[in-house]
Design a protein around this nucleic acid. Structure first.
Lengths: 226, 226, 226, 226
DNA sequence: AATGAATGAGGGTTCATTCAT
DNA sequence: TATGAATGAACCCTCATTCAT
């Protein structure tokens, strides 16, 4: 066990160094030498722990991703309502990214577009996370929170695409500097839309019956008129 | 002119071949040799037309991108309403991608995350396209179509992120096979949201007064019918 | 003739540009392109005038060298005495170098150590110059100005070697800044030596005692007997 | 130590091969491949020992030069008189060249005119050697062996220039075949000059008349009056 | 006379990877 | 467990040179 622990430590040291290097430069421009120098070991030693340069690359995101998914799985049961759950997922996603800029760079700029990555253990975990999000959306549809016509896959694509776009921008250009504060705003906008609801006729109906009609509760019909 | 034409033709031949090769494999794994063999010229000849491998890479997206932006600029003045304009932009974007799978692969999988690409002429054109979209959103806010609280930048991020996500998925996994048909659905969902507007209190009121308010037949479903 | 003149002009333009370029960088690092750009012609045009890069290189020193030799040949008959003639030759050599720094760089740093240069027309001219110097030394020996034991070839090597050393240093390091003023000093030192001839006393001793003077104790003249 | 020895051996093997190749052809025409084939290693291995082709080139003369300087430093203290010392230095120089023809070719034909070489460790050693020679000349001036008007720098230039000229000729044309035997002749000629001190008659005159023969009035000084 | 266009030939250099120790 | 030593395998790029026009 002591052995295995020591091995694991060394392995993690290598992974940490690799994350640092791979996040700074393209995979092809990063060298094993640079990584091992950072750890203070020989290049040959790296091959005692990882089969190849690519193996090392793919081993990096595993831990952070797994922890993030684990965390959200623990949290979710305590949250009521699809919207709340989605907000939790998005918030968690953005928080992890914000707190791990190098990890974010690696995932958004390199792994996401790497074909071989898709056959990786780490990718399976990510897929699992995407499935959780999908389930929340479906749950919202099933319980009537979301329109029954909602395409859960498209909705997930919108949410994930938005996060990816923002994270990529953040790593490439430095803005937006603060991801976390965008969490709820993203979800609100995506779930509720931005179209102003004003339907004279129906609004008048409402007015007669109920004067509490606000932004959030406004009828969602307007858009379709076009 | 004959001269310049011949040169241009040769240049385009090289670009076409490069697009083919660069879209199939990572930039670093693609070789000049492979590209020039495809054209039937020597490697040295390539260097008569482009200064370096990277120069060639960055020269590829120029034409398609420029044409797409040009087209949308011509179309836009004839479209009324922010929502319509946004739909046109998204539709155009997706159509270009669908019709140019290799171009899409190149842009989504390689150029988008390439730091040097940002100082490129082609990137400036892309930026211009993003600005047009932003202006449409702002226009919608200004004319009251969209809620005044809307963050146009976030909204643009949502739209672009969604498109990028879908295009990337398409090139990586082959699905969704048909991008174009997602255009309006994306915009509808993003602009109108998916939250069902029923407020228990208000619903009960409605029920008493109006029997036409139903889940399935609700106005909010309309978009999906398209 | 007009044609031939025009051709010659163009040829000289190219030679001038080549001299500039070749004197600045090693032959191998200089490019035809750089030279032709300086002239404002295409690279192909250069090949209309010279057979190859090396041909061009070897064509450069011809004119200056020939003129210098010609000049010294005209001057020499008017000078009396071997020492005066040698001084004239050295002075002329140094003056040419001083006035043509690029030519000097070319000859001293590149051509002198180029094996192919030895089969060149320009080299023959240089050889002729060396022969003239040799003849002056021989003349000095024959007429008793120089010791009969003098090795004219070695003496020429001393003179030429010194000039080459100084010129090389000048071009490599910038010093001595003024070559010309070294002319007479070189010849004086070389011809007369630097050993102090003192010692009437010792001489008288010898005279009184013995004409079998040995090497070590011999007056300063002895060594040359060997 | 065993390790370091093995590495050093390998390094020396490469240097030896490089010397052979670089002395035969111009630096630019020599290839790493040719050198490493001679050693029986891969080209990549060469780069484990030397950073670049030029690094290898500059590493070659180090050992021989250092040894030569070291040797002369050990010998010099045992030699009396400036002339003797200078003869020892020249003799040593020529002997090293004669015994190391390839080294001589490299130094005389390539390194001497290579600007980058001047910032090399090996060049510093050479400079040191030149300083030793200069000191001997100065010593001769100070102790009255040489005329007080002697320019030690010019004198050094004469001696070194002559050696360089002869060595260069030897490597380029094969003559003189024997350098070593020229050692003393060079020094004698350079130090004592070749001008015939005529006049046994005048000498006898001096003897009879005056034993205080001084610098300025000596027959051999005449030339300097000019 | 001039050159635009094309290329053959090659060479230095870099690294991921291996393996004996 | 760790690594020193070695290398195979490429690739980008440069230029002198040619030739049809």
């Amino acid at each position: 066990m002591a052995n295995s622990n020591r091995k694991d430590n060394r392995k993690n040291e290598i992974i940490d160094a690799a994350l640092k290097v791979f996040s700074e430069k393209e995979y092809q421009d990063a060298t094993i030498s640079e990584i091992t120098k950072l750890v203070g070991i020989s290049e040959a030693t790296m091959y005692e722990y990882f089969g190849s340069k690519e193996d090392l690359l793919f081993a990096i995101p595993g831990k952070i991703t797994a922890e993030a998914i684990e965390f959200i799985e623990q949290i979710l049961p305590f949250i009521r309502g699809a919207e709340g759950k989605i907000k939790a997922i998005v918030q968690n996603y953005l928080t992890v990214c914000q707190n791990n800029p190098e990890y974010t760079s690696l995932v958004m700029l390199q792994l996401k577009t790497n074909r071989n990555f898709r056959s990786t253990e780490a990718f399976k975990i990510i897929r699992k996370g995407a499935l959780i999000l999908l389930d929340c959306i479906k749950e919202g549809i099933d319980d009537g929170t979301f329109k029954s016509t909602t395409d859960p896959y498209l909705e997930r694509a919108i949410i994930l695409g938005t996060i990816e776009h923002l994270c990529t921008r953040w790593r490439m250009m430095g803005s937006p500097a603060n991801l976390i504060e965008h969490g709820d705003r993203i979800v609100n906008s995506v779930l509720h839309g931005i179209v102003e609801k004003k339907d004279a006729r129906r609004v008048s109906l409402h007015l007669e019956l109920d004067d509490e009609t606000g932004d959030e509760s406004a009828p969602s019909d307007a858009p379709d008129k076009k």
